Simulated assay, not measured.
Amino acid sequence: MSAPGTFPAQMAIGQSTGRWRLYVAIYGIPGSQWPEYVFDGAAVPSVQDRSRALDALGYTFTDTPEWAWSEDYAPGDDPAQPVSLIASAQVREVAS
């Protein structure tokens, strides 16, 4: 769970689009309404690109721009299947 006033930002590659998608998960709001940014191309966005995307969404890192990476497996946990990589970082909304 995030600290009060902070939210988890996550980034993953879309299985159907092949493009990286960064979104801010806001509890109590349906995922279809979360702020999101879709990057062009399939290359992993740089830390600077991710920072600019968060800025465009009105968020900033809570501390340092560190991203934690994890693997997610397809249903059935077949080790022969490719894994999905998910990056996450804690962010806060920028005061307007």
Rank of each mutant, 00 (worst) to 15 (best):
M1L: 14
A3S: 15
P4T: 07
P4M: 08
P4D: 05
P4V: 05
T6I: 07
T6D: 01
P8A: 03
P8W: 11
P8Q: 07
A9W: 00
Q10K: 15
Q10R: 15
Q10V: 15
M11R: 01
M11T: 08
M11C: 12
A12I: 11
I13D: 00
I13S: 05
I13R: 15
G14A: 05
G14T: 06
Q15D: 14
Q15R: 15
Q15E: 14
S16Q: 15
S16C: 07
T17I: 06
T17Y: 08
R19D: 07
W20C: 09
W20R: 11
L22W: 06
Y23V: 03
Y23A: 07
V24Y: 01
V24G: 04
V24H: 00
Y27G: 08
Y27M: 08
Y27R: 14
Y27D: 14
Y27S: 14
Y27I: 10
G28D: 04
G28C: 07
G28H: 10
I29Y: 04
I29L: 10
P30G: 01
G31I: 04
G31K: 12
G31F: 01
S32M: 11
S32Y: 09
S32N: 13
Q33N: 12
W34D: 09
W34L: 03
P35Y: 04
E36V: 04
E36A: 11
E36W: 07
Y37K: 05
Y37W: 13
Y37E: 05
Y37Q: 09
V38Y: 06
V38K: 13
V38W: 11
F39H: 09
F39D: 08
F39E: 01
A42V: 13
A43R: 15
A43Y: 08
A43G: 12
A43L: 12
V44P: 03
P45D: 00
P45H: 02
P45V: 06
P45T: 05
S46L: 06
S46I: 10
S46W: 09
V47L: 08
V47D: 13
Q48C: 04
D49I: 08
D49F: 09
R50K: 14
S51C: 02
R52L: 13
A53P: 00
A53W: 03
D55A: 15
D55T: 11
D55C: 10
L57E: 03
Y59T: 07
T60P: 01
F61A: 05
F61M: 02
T62H: 00
T64G: 13
P65Q: 04
P65K: 07
E66K: 14
W67K: 02
W67A: 06
A68P: 04
A68M: 12
W69C: 12
W69T: 11
W69Q: 13
S70T: 07
E71D: 12
E71Q: 10
D72I: 13
D72G: 12
A74M: 11
P75N: 03
D77F: 12
D78R: 11
D78P: 09
P79K: 00
P79T: 02
P79V: 00
A80R: 09
Q81G: 04
Q81N: 01
P82I: 07
P82C: 03
P82L: 01
V83M: 06
V83H: 03
S84L: 09
S84D: 00
L85H: 14
L85F: 11
I86N: 05
A87E: 10
S88L: 06
S88D: 06
A89P: 00
A89G: 04
Q90F: 10
Q90P: 00
Q90S: 15
R92W: 03
E93F: 01
E93M: 07
V94L: 04
